[in-house]
Design a protein around this nucleic acid. Structure first.
Length: 233
DNA sequence: ATCCTGAGTC
DNA sequence: GACTCTGGAT
């Protein structure tokens, strides 16, 4: 069992190295709306990307926009079959259609169709509300909180867990919250940095620290990683 | 533990 | 052909 815990300084060191290595990621780009519907685009993207590649989710967003099923009211009123057709590329299209509609329904019926009213909730209340909606689990909730509502909730996911495990860090348990706490308890709340940090960790896991055949020899974190040293020895 | 499920990569 | 991808509900 790993017994080491990262310090705040180590986490920031890793952040700096990754950022210096690949530059800022354009994580969660908003293509169709920088104004009133930006929150919708981010939340819809967060649902559509579940267990799927971003390219598939992005295509679904594009099709939704072109079909003019755009915004909470539009999704709320649209035929299910039209949504299914538009988001087919994202996979799990029947399930995701129900998820999109559940989120839109909450926004329209409880928040006047304006996500500013939802995002005004205090962080823990906002998270509880999001988690109560069908189709929104912890990761999707934190995506929406951090990237759309712009409140500090560190996004955890399978990529980041893999990095944490390979770096040999001690984690209190095996749950989402255990891994999330590792970062949130050591980093000062900062929406910009947390958003970029998550993007950097995901990029590293996807392109260097892959599930199989990781590229340890070219990893900028190699000197900090027991798994990498072992792989190369 | 199983179901949902498209598109790219190996 | 199998695997992986910015998961969540049952």
């Amino acid at each position: 069992m790993p017994t080491t815990e990262p310090t705040t300084e180590l986490l920031l060191e890793i952040y700096d190295r990754l950022l210096a290595n690949v530059g800022e990621r354009n994580w969660w780009p908003v293509r169709y709306d920088s104004g009133a519907e930006a929150g919708f685009e981010i939340a819809a993207g967060a649902i559509l990307v579940q267990n799927t590649s971003w390219s598939n989710a992005e295509r679904a967003l594009k099709n939704l926009h072109e079909a003019k099923i755009w915004g909470y009211q539009a999704v709320y009123e649209a035929d299910e079959s039209k949504i299914v057709e538009a988001i087919r590329s994202s996979g799990y299209y029947n399930t995701k259609t129900k998820k999109l509609r559940a989120y839109a329904q909450t926004l329209v019926e409880e928040f006047g169709g304006d996500d500013a009213n939802l995002f005004d909730l205090e962080l823990s209340e906002l998270r509880e509300k999001l988690l109560s909606i069908y189709g929104i689990g912890e990761e999707t909730a934190d995506d929406i909180i951090l990237y759309a509502a712009k409140k500090p909730s560190f996004v955890m996911d399978a990529y980041t867990r893999r990095l944490v495990d390979r770096l040999g860090w001690k984690v209190a348990g095996n749950k989402y919250a255990d891994y999330q706490r590792l970062f949130m308890s050591k980093l000062k709340p900062n929406v910009e940095i947390w958003g970029e940090f998550h993007a950097q960790l995901d990029g590293q896991a996807a392109r260097v620290c892959m599930k199989r055949n990781p590229l340890c020899e070219s990893c900028v974190l190699l000197d900090l990683c027991p798994t990498g040293k072992k792989n190369l020895s």
